[in-house]
Design a protein around this nucleic acid. Structure first.
Length: 1121
RNA sequence: AGAUCCGUAGCUCAGCCUGGUUAGAGCACUACACUGAUAAUGUAGGGGUCAGCAGUUCAAAUCUGCUCGGGUCUACCA
C-alpha cells in the first residue's frame, strides 16, 4: 500500500508539539541543524545569560522567541549558527535571596556563618530553578546548547575575567579612586543602588534648611558686580545658596551656577540681623524671598519691625558671567583650613569659586548650589572638573571630625538614637543667623533616602572604589556605536547614544561576598600593588611568596581544588617587588562585568580557543537580542569592554525588545497577581501559537499587551486555516494517490489561477526574506498570515475545490495538486523559524509521501528562494480585480436577496481604459463562476448610460497648483456629464480660475464610474459593477437544478456515503419541478454521481422530504452496491 | 528631573519615514447567506473629535512645537 499523507485528527497544537519534541530528541535535530552547516560561514550569536535563581516568565519567552527565530532563519539561509547557553550566577539578587532564605543579614556573614559556607550556599541556590529553565527552553522550542553552557562562577570563566582585568590594568584603564556613594553610617557600609531602590527607603522627612550667604571677594573678575554697589549702604555682596543639609557647609568648596540662568544682584536687608546687604540669586526665584510690594520700597525708613523687606534689583546678568568669582569660606576652622583641602587632581586645589554646571535649576533654592564635593555625586563631578579639592568633615560613623570648634565630634544626624540629641543642623543655622550669614532658615519637607536595614538616613559619602576608565575611550565608543544596527534605531541613537555621551567611569567595586574577586594584591601601606591575570600567574606568585616569606604563607594552596572565590583567594598572600607581603583588596567586581565579558569568558579566551576570537570566527556577534532594560546593562558592558580591549564592536546587530505588560497595559508583577505563567500558556495553547502571537501582534520593541484571547485568535485564525488547508489537500491527494511523482508541470502550462497563487507565493517569499533580513519578523509573520488566509485558503482553495474532487486524475488535477503542494511546502518553510513545531509536523507529513527533501526536519532545509520568473505583477493585479468584482457582485446579490446558487444572466462593468478591459477579460471566467453569472459585458461607450464623476488627482496637481487647488476642486465638482466626456474625448480641459485660463490634462484628474441608471450597482475605487437581476424562466430552472444537486449532496453526506459511491434516485412526481430536473438531468447526474433519476408516482417508504425554493419534494437516494 | 517609546473603532494593531480629500484590517457585536475544507467560510451593518492645543501648508492621523496620559531606563539633587 502506498504511503498516505497523514491526516490530523484535530488541531491539537500542544499534542503535535509533544510528538515533534520527541522526534527532535530522537534525531538530535538541533545538533544536526548545526552540524549540517559545518564549514559554512558562521553567524555569530551571543546568548545573554539569564539568572537561574528566578523563575522564567512570559517576557523571557518573547526575547527567546526572537533569538530563536533569527538563529533558525540564519541556519536555513545556510549559515552555521552555534548557540552556547549560559548562566549568570553572581550578584546581589542571589545574595539577597540567600540571606532571606537563611534569615541573616550582611553583617552576619563571617560571624553566624562563614564566608565559605555562605558562598557555598549561593553556589547551590543560584541554579535553583535551572530545571524549570531547561523545561521552558525545551517546551518553547528554543534551540540553544544547554549541554555545555558557560557558568559565570566557573574558575575558567573567572580566569578569563582576570585576564581581561589585567589587560585593562596594564593599559592604565583600571584604577582606584574615591567615588561618592550612598553610605549608611548607622550600618557602616556602602549601599548599592539596588538596595537604595528597596521599597520604603525614600521617606518624607522634615529637615532644617538654610539659605547661606557667601561673601564675594572683590577683584578683577567680580568688578562688574561691585561697580553696582558703589554708594550703596553696604559695600558687601553675598551669593545666596540653599541647603537641606547644613552639616555639609563646613565641607563647602564651591558654588555652582547655571550658565544660562538669569541672575540678579539685589539690594535689601538681612531679615535676621537687619543689616543692609546685597545678594545674588536667580531672577526666577526672587518671589521666593521677596514680596512684590517690597520692590523699590522705602530703604531709608526700614526698621526691624518692618514686615516687608524692601528690595531693589541693581544688576542683571547670566550665570556664565559669574564663573570663577571667588568668595570667602563660610565657616572656617582649623580642620577645614586651606592646607587640609585634599586635591581631586594632580594640581593644587583652587577652592571657593563660582562654578558652572547644567544640573542647576531654578525650581528650588536660589539657583546657586552649595557644592561640597564629598557629599554629592554632582558636586564631586563639577568639583573635580574645576579642581576645587575635597573636604570630608564627617567621619564614617557620621560625626564631625576634630577641629571644627563647637561642632567637633557631633553626629550630623541622630544615628545612635541618643536621648536628647540636639540637631547640629539647627545649631549651624543659628550660628549663621547670628553672623549675618543666613538669609532664610526654615523646616523643609522632602523625600530622603534611608538605609533599608537601619531605617536611618543615608549620606552620600566618598568611598574608595575601583573604576574602569571608560571615559578615556568615550569618543571611540560613540563612533563605533554608529556602526551598530540597532532595532529599533531610536534606542541606539537615543537611549544608548545619550548614555554614551554622558558616560562616567565604570564603578566596578562591590563590597559583597558572592562574585568575581578583583585580582589586585596590595602591600599594607598601599605603596605597591600587583594585578594577577591567570591562575598560573597566581600559583607561581604564591609559590614565590612562600619561598620569600616563609612556609607559613599559602600553606593550603593547591592547584587541584583551587577556588577563585572568597574566602580562598583572600587567604593567598603574595610578595611585592621589595619583598613585602601583599593581600588582596577586598572588593568584588560588578556582576555586569561578568556578563559584558561573556564573548571571551565563555570560550576561556585566551587560554583556550584563542583562534576563535583572534581570527573573528566567534567574534564579534552578528546578532544579539535582549529586553530594552538591558540597554545600559548588558548592551553597554559588552560594548564598553569590547571597545576598551579590542577596539571593535561586540555585536553588529542588536534587537532590544519591549516589555510584556498585562492586557490592561500594567507591568506584570507578583504583587498585582497579573503575571502570566508561560508553562500554563504553552501547555494550553502550544508554543507555536504563543510564539506566533508574541511576534506578530506587535513589533518586538513595542511593549506588548499580553492577552490570552490573542493567542486563541492566532490559533483559530492562522493555524486553524493552515490546518484546514492541509487537511483538504491530504484528503484528496490520498484519494488520487498524488505523491508528486509526475514531472513538474511548467508554469506556462498551468491555469491562470495556479500561476496566480504561485506568483503570489513567490512575492511572499521575497517579502518574508526581506523582512527577516531586516530583523522585522513581525512584518514577515503578518505577510505569511495574510497569504495563508486571504490568498491560499479563501481564494485559491475555495475556487479550486472542484478541481480536486471532480473528474479524472489528469493534467489539470495534477496541476492543482502540484500547486497546492508547493504552496504548503513553501509556507511551512517560511514559517518554520517563528513556529518551529507545527511547520515541522506538516513538513513531515508532506515529505513522508513525496520525499522531495532528503532531510529529517524542516529545520534542516534551506529557506525558500524566490523564483522571480514566477512573479507576474499584472496577474496579481487582475486577480485582485477579480476578487473585488466578485465581492461587489455578491454584495449586490445580498442586497436584492438572490442567492448565489441562482444563476444570473449578465454583469456590466464599465472599463475606463483598454488595459483594464484586457485585465478583466483574463479573469472573466473566474468571476463568472465565483458569482454564478453567465456573461460579462464591458461598456466603454457610455454616455447617457453611466454617470461618471471626476475629482482632482491631488498628488499630481498639488505641486503645480499650490493655492489654486481649492478653486480647481470646486470647479471639477461642478462638472456635468457633458464636461467629463468632452474632457475625455479631447484629452484636456481649459478651466477658468479667477478669470485666468488653466489647462488640465487627463493624468491630473481621476474619473470613475458612479452609477448606471436602472441597474443595481456597486463600486469600489475605480471599479464599478452593475448586475442584471432579472431571473428568466430558463435561469430559474437552472437554479432549481442546482438547488436540487445541493440537497442531494447533503443527503449523500448525511447518509454517510463515500465520496465515490454511485447512486440511483427516485422522485415522487412533482409538477412544478419536473421540467427543471429533466432538462438538467445530465448535469445533475454528473454532479451527484447518479446513474438514474426517475419520477415515480409514490415512494414506498415515503423517502425524504426536501425543499427546493420552498417547493416540497419527496426523494429516495439509493446507494448502488 | 532628564532621555526615550507609546497614545488611531469596545479590544489588538496597520497607515506616519516620503502630507493628497470616504482613515483601514482582524477580533467582538448585529443580521443574512453558504455547506463534499465544516471545531470552517462568505456578505452586509453599526462603531473614530486619529489623546489635546497651537503652528507650517492649497491640503495634516502623517511635518514642527507645547500640553496631557501611560510605559521604561537613568538620576535623586542644592
Amino acid at each position: 500500500m502506498k504511503v498516505k499523507y497523514k491526516e490530523f485528527s484535530g488541531l491539537n497544537l500542544p499534542a503535535i508539539e509533544k510528538e515533534i519534541l520527541t522526534k527532535w530528541e530522537e534525531n538530535d535535530a538541533f545538533e544536526k541543524s548545526v552540524m549540517l552547516r559545518e564549514g559554512a560561514t558562521p553567524f555569530v550569536f551571543y546568548e545573554g545569560p539569564p539568572s537561574a535563581n528566578g523563575m522564567p516568565g512570559i517576557h523571557h519567552v518573547i526575547s527567546r522567541t526572537l533569538k530563536d527565530l533569527v538563529c533558525r532563519y540564519k541556519t536555513m539561509q545556510g549559515f552555521q549558527v552555534k548557540r552556547k547557553g549560559g548562566w549568570d550566577t553572581h550578584g546581589l539578587p542571589v545574595e539577597l535571596g540567600v540571606e532571606k532564605m537563611l534569615g541573616i543579614t550582611k553583617e552576619d556573614i563571617g560571624k553566624k556563618i562563614s564566608v565559605a559556607e555562605y558562598n557555598e550556599t549561593c553556589r547551590k541556590e543560584v541554579l535553583k530553578y535551572k530545571d524549570k529553565w531547561d523545561e521552558i527552553t525545551t517546551k518553547m522550542g528554543y534551540w540553544v546548547d544547554l549541554n555545555d553552557p558557560y557558568i559565570t562562577f566557573d574558575n575558567k570563566y573567572i580566569e578569563t575575567l582576570w585576564w581581561l582585568l589585567k589587560r585593562l590594568y596594564d593599559k592604565g584603564l583600571l584604577y582606584e579612586s574615591v567615588s561618592i556613594q550612598p553610605y549608611s553610617p548607622a550600618a557602616g557600609t556602602g549601599l548599592s543602588s539596588h538596595e537604595l531602590n528597596q521599597p520604603g527607603t525614600y521617606k518624607n522627612v522634615k529637615d532644617t534648611s538654610a539659605v547661606a550667604m557667601f561673601k564675594a571677594v572683590e577683584n578683577e573678575k567680580s568688578q562688574f558686580l561691585f561697580n553696582s554697589v558703589i554708594n550703596q549702604p553696604s559695600p558687601d555682596i553675598y551669593f545666596l545658596a540653599w541647603t537641606t543639609t547644613p552639616w555639609t557647609l563646613p565641607s563647602n568648596l564651591g558654588l555652582t551656577a547655571g550658565p544660562n540662568i538669569d541672575y540678579v544682584l539685589v539690594k535689601t536687608y538681612n531679615p535676621y540681623t537687619h543689616l543692609p546687604v546685597n545678594v545674588i540669586l536667580a531672577k526666577a526665584l526672587i518671589s521666593k524671598y521677596f514680596k512684590p510690594e517690597g520692590e523699590n520700597g522705602e530703604f531709608e525708613n526700614y526698621t526691624e519691625n518692618n514686615k516687608i523687606l524692601p528690595w531693589k534689583i541693581l544688576a542683571e546678568f547670566k550665570g556664565s558671567e559669574l564663573e570663577g568669582i571667588q568668595y570667602e569660606q563660610l565657616l572656617s576652622y582649623p580642620a577645614n583650613s586651606l592646607k587640609n583641602i585634599l586635591p581631586l587632581a594632580d594640581e593644587v586645589p583652587e577652592p571657593f569659586r563660582v562654578l558652572l554646571a547644567d544640573f542647576v535649576t531654578t525650581e528650588d533654592g536660589t539657583g546657586i548650589v552649595h557644592t561640597a564635593p564629598a557629599f554629592g555625586a554632582d558636586d564631586y563631578k563639577v568639583g573635580k572638573k574645576y579642581n576645587i579639592g575635597i573636604l570630608t568633615m564627617v567621619d564614617r560613623q557620621g560625626k564631625f571630625v576634630d577641629g571644627l570648634g563647637e561642632f567637633s565630634n557631633r553626629f550630623v544626624k541622630n544615628y545612635k538614637d541618643e536621648k536628647g540629641y540636639e540637631d547640629v543642623n539647627v545649631d549651624i543655622s543659628v550660628k549663621l543667623k547670628k553672623e549675618n550669614k543666613a538669609f532664610k532658615v526654615e523646616k523643609y519637607e522632602h523625600s530622603y533616602p534611608h538605609c533599608w536595614r537601619t531605617d536611618k538616613p543615608i549620606l552620600y559619602y566618598p568611598l574608595d572604589a575601583w573604576f574602569i576608565k571608560t571615559t578615556a575611550l568615550k569618543d571611540r565608543m560613540v563612533e563605533l556605536n554608529k556602526t551598530i544596527n540597532w532595532k529599533p534605531k531610536s534606542t541606539g541613537e537615543g537611549r544608548f547614544g545619550n548614555w554614551l555621551e554622558n558616560m562616567v567611569d565604570w564603578n566596578l567595586s562591590r563590597s559583597r561576598y558572592w562574585g568575581t574577586p578583583l585580582p589586585v594584591w596590595k602591600t599594607a601601606d598601599g605603596s605597591e600593588e600587583k594585578c594577577i591575570g591567570s591562575i598560573e600567574e597566581l600559583i607561581s606568585a604564591a609559590e614565590e611568596a612562600k619561598k620569600l616569606l616563609g612556609e607559613a604563607v599559602n600553606q593550603h594552596l593547591s592547584t587541584a581544588d583551587l577556588d577563585l572565590h572568597k574566602p580562598f583567594v583572600d587567604e593567598i598572600v603574595l610578595v611585592s617587588e621589595s619583598g613585602k607581603p601583599m593581600k588582596r583588596v577586598p572588593d568584588l567586581v560588578d556582576v555586569w562585568f561578568d556578563s559584558g565579558a561573556m564573548p571571551y569568558a565563555q570560550l576561556h579566551y585566551p587560554f583556550e580557543n584563542k583562534d576563535l576570537i583572534d581570527a573573528g570566527k566567534a567574534f564579534p556577534a552578528d546578532f544579539i537580542a535582549e529586553g530594552v532594560d538591558q540597554t545600559r546593562g548588558w548592551f553597554y558592558t559588552l560594548h564598553a569592554l569590547c571597545v576598551l580591549l579590542f577596539d571593535s564592536v561586540a555585536y553588529k546587530t542588536v534587537v532590544s525588545n519591549g516589555l510584556v505588560l498585562d492586557k490592561n497595559g500594567n507591568k506584570m508583577s507578583k504583587r498585582l497577581g497579573n503575571v502570566v505563567d508561560p508553562f500554563q500558556t504553552i501547555e494550553k495553547f502550544g508554543a507555536d501559537a504563543t510564539r506566533w502571537y508574541l511576534i506578530t501582534n506587535a513589533s518586538p520593541w513595542d511593549n506588548l499587551k499580553f492577552d490570552i484571547g490573542g493567542i486563541q485568535e492566532v490559533q483559530r485564525k492562522f493555524f486553524g486555516t493552515l490546518y484546514n488547508t492541509y487537511q483538504f489537500f491530504a484528503l484528496y491527494s490520498n484519494l488520487d494517490g498524488f505523491a508528486f511523482k509526475e514531472a513538474y508541470i511548467p508554469l506556462d502550462q498551468r491555469p491562470e489561477i495556479d500561476r496566480w497563487i504561485l506568483s503570489s507565493l513567490n512575492s511572499l517569499v521575497i517579502r518574508v526574506t526581506e523582512s527577516m533580513n531586516d530583523y522585522e519578523p513581525t512584518q514577515a509573520g503578518r505577510a505569511i498570515e495574510e497569504f495563508v488566509d486571504e490568498h491560499l485558503s479563501n481564494w485559491y482553495v475555495r475556487l479550486c475545490r472542484r478541481r480536486f474532487w471532480k473528474g479524472e486524475y489528469g493534467q489539470d488535477k495534477i496541476c492543482a495538486y502540484q500547486t497546492l503542494y508547493e504552496c504548503l511546502e513553501t509556507v511551512v518553510r517560511l514559517m518554520a523559524p517563528i513556529s518551529p513545531f507545527f511547520s515541522d509536523a506538516v513538513f513531515h507529513n508532506l515529505n513522508a509521501v513525496t520525499g522531495r527533501f532528503n532531510v529529517e526536519s524542516v529545520h534542516h532545509t534551506d529557506f525558500p528562494k524566490e523564483n522571480k520568473a514566477a512573479v507576474d505583477t499584472l496577474l496579481e493585479e487582475r486577480m485582485q480585480l477579480a476578487q473585488d468584482a466578485s465581492s461587489l457582485i455578491l454584495s449586490i446579490r445580498k442586497k436584492v436577496n438572490i442567492k448565489v446558487r441562482q444563476p444570473l444572466q449578465k454583469v456590466l462593468i464599465p472599463v475606463l481604459n483598454p488595459q483594464m478591459k484586457e485585465q478583466l477579460l483574463k479573469v472573466e471566467d473566474l468571476i463568472k463562476s465565483e458569482v454564478n453569472v453567465k456573461e460579462i459585458e464591458y461598456i466603454t461607450e457610455t454616455e447617457g448610460f453611466i454617470n461618471k464623476k471626476i475629482k482632482p488627482n491631488f498628488i499630481a496637481l498639488g505641486k503645480k497648483l499650490g493655492s489654486k487647488m481649492k478653486a480647481v476642486t470646486a470647479a471639477l465638482t461642478a462638472f456635468t456629464q457633458n464636461d467629463i466626456s468632452k474632457f475625455e474625448k479631447e484629452g484636456n480641459f481649459i478651466l477658468q480660475i479667477n478669470g485666468e485660463p488653466l489647462t488640465l490634462n487627463l493624468t491630473e484628474v481621476e474619473i470613475s464610474a458612479e452609477d448606471i441608471p436602472g441597474w443595481s450597482v456597486a463600486s469600489k475605487g475605480s471599479l464599478t459593477v452593475a448586475l442584471d437581476i432579472t431571473v428568466s424562466d430558463q435561469l430559474r430552472k437552472e437554479g432549481e437544478a442546482r438547488e436540487f444537486v445541493n440537497r442531494i449532496q447533503n443527503l449523500r453526506k448525511d447518509s454517510g456515503f463515500e465520496v465515490t459511491d454511485r447512486i440511483n434516485i427516485n422522485i415522487e412526481e412533482n409538477e412544478r419541478l419536473v421540467n427543471s430536473i429533466n432538462e438538467y438531468k445530465n448535469y445533475i447526474c454528473a454532479e451527484i454521481l447518479a446513474d438514474s433519476i426517475d419520477f415515480v408516482p409514490q415512494i414506498l417508504d415515503g423517502g425524504t422530504e426536501i425543499e427546493i425554493n420552498d417547493i416540497p419534494l419527496h426523494v429516495s437516494v439509493i446507494k448502488k452496491s
